[in-house]
């Protein structure tokens, strides 16, 4: 039965990859145009699971809405402890806490500094009361590795709704996770401050303190394992093509422009433990 699961998975993956083809050309993940959330930066991706007071976390979404050409969104935010959110076919919060978004719960993309409506939204502060009691009923392994606390945003404009989720982790593990810190975006081996307009190689460099961290995970038998983060870097661009659009730490991508016009380039790095950082390069 167990081997059959593996064969099922292998054959399904391979059958899909090798024997299936579809005719449509879907929109590329990294191409900017329609409303996209590029990341949500938390000032602290992890929450101290031994804290008994109130812990405040500031969250800043980074969006791009080129095709929207400047519009106002109604913003609603709720938060809740994980009760199987991601396992459900209809993800939603159980017993959600309503959070107050600034500006009366609205955001206008025209206010973004970039002319192509790409940049950071107003930050929102989430207050988590007595994190220790929130996770007290979970197993020790779960408390050590972390219990998820979700912050769910919804942007609504006209008939269009867009939902995105930021996961905070309440954990008894120390030290708490920190965000990556980007030192520079490298293009053909040199740091750049604006989007490129010619072909070349893109990569990302981090400050010493912002490099992937090594942390511990507890196995089900209680044994601690050391794990080193592997950053996921995503390139978002307004034209041309970056290939591959997503890379891991110490890898690089190739940029091919459509023309000689400089592009908007956003490099977003995630440590996949809630830590996020970005660099937004104007044309």
């Amino acid at each position: 039965m167990k081997s059959k699961l593996t064969v099922l998975m292998i054959s399904s993956v391979l059958s899909f990859l090798l024997t299936s083809c579809n005719r449509a050309e879907f929109e590329e993940f990294s191409e900017l145009g329609s409303l996209r959330i590029l990341g949500v930066v938390a000032d602290s991706p992890e929450v101290d699971g031994t804290a008994t007071g109130t812990v405040n976390i500031s969250l800043t979404p980074v969006i791009s809405d080129i095709d929207g050409a400047g519009r106002t969104f109604a913003v609603t935010v709720v938060s809740c402890l994980d009760t199987g959110f991601v396992q459900s076919s209809q993800p939603s919060c159980e017993n959600p806490t309503a959070e107050a978004y600034p500006n009366g719960g609205t955001f206008n993309t025209t206010g973004l500094a970039a002319s192509d409506f790409t940049g950071a939204m107003d930050p929102i502060t989430i207050s988590i009361n007595n994190p220790a009691s929130l996770i007290a009923d979970f197993s020790s392994t779960r408390r050590f590795n972390g219990v998820s606390y979700y912050v769910i945003f919804n942007l609504q404009s006209g008939s269009e709704n867009f939902t995105f989720v930021k996961e905070l982790v309440i954990t008894e593990r120390t030290p708490l996770n920190q965000n990556p810190v980007i030192d520079s975006i490298q293009f053909n081996g040199s740091a750049i401050a604006v989007g490129p307009s010619s072909a070349g190689e893109l990569s990302m460099e981090f400050t010493p303190a912002g490099e992937p961290e090594t942390y511990q995970e507890q196995r089900s038998d209680g044994v601690l394992e050391s794990v080193t983060e592997s950053y996921l870097i995503t390139w978002f661009y307004s034209s041309g093509k970056v290939s591959p659009g997503r890379i891991l730490t110490d890898q690089s991508s190739t940029f091919k422009p459509d023309n000689t016009t400089a592009i908007r380039l956003v490099g977003v790095v995630k440590d996949r433990r809630g830590g996020t950082a970005f660099v937004n390069l104007s044309p």
Partner: peptide, 11 residues
């Protein structure tokens, strides 16, 4: 639903 931590969409 966009799940920011993993940079992926939940169906």
């Amino acid at each position: 639903i966009y799940f920011e931590n993993a940079d992926i969409y939940l169906p």
